[in-house]
């Protein structure tokens, strides 16, 4: 994991992947590349889980992407699922008003 990919992708089982975010920080030149990659994961899998538990730095745009992916997946009959979120990310999600639109894993 480095600045080229501020997240790691794990295949949990066929059709189910987990994106483990460390930092939502990266060069703005690569932001679109990351979004395209995440969108492709949503298209090619039934379930995309993501974990923001260990994420200590993130821009609001990354959270909005997650919201967008969640909404897109729902329209495709798929699922984008948040399996963990640090307090700071939760706080930012509240500030920008998207918390209710994130799909949290029921524990």
């Amino acid at each position: 994991m480095n600045d080229l990919a501020p997240y790691a992708i794990e295949v949990e089982e066929p059709g189910v992947v987990l994106i483990r975010f460390r930092s939502g920080r990266c060069s703005s030149r690569r932001m679109n590349k990351h979004e395209v990659e995440i969108a492709e994961l949503v298209r090619s899998n039934e379930t995309v889980k993501y974990d923001l538990s260990d994420t200590t730095a993130i821009g609001s745009a990354w959270i909005k992407w997650m919201v967008k992916m969640t909404l897109m997946a729902r329209r495709m009959g798929k699922e984008v699922l948040c399996v963990g979120m640090s307090d700071s990310i939760r706080s930012m999600s509240e500030v920008i008003g998207v918390l209710d639109d994130l799909n949290f894993e029921q524990k």
Binding site: S28, M31, E35, S60, W65, K68
Partner: peptide, 10 residues
């Protein structure tokens, strides 16, 4: 600003 976060590329 809010919209820009939902547009690709941002």
């Amino acid at each position: 600003h809010s919209i820009s976060g939902y547009v690709s590329p941002m």
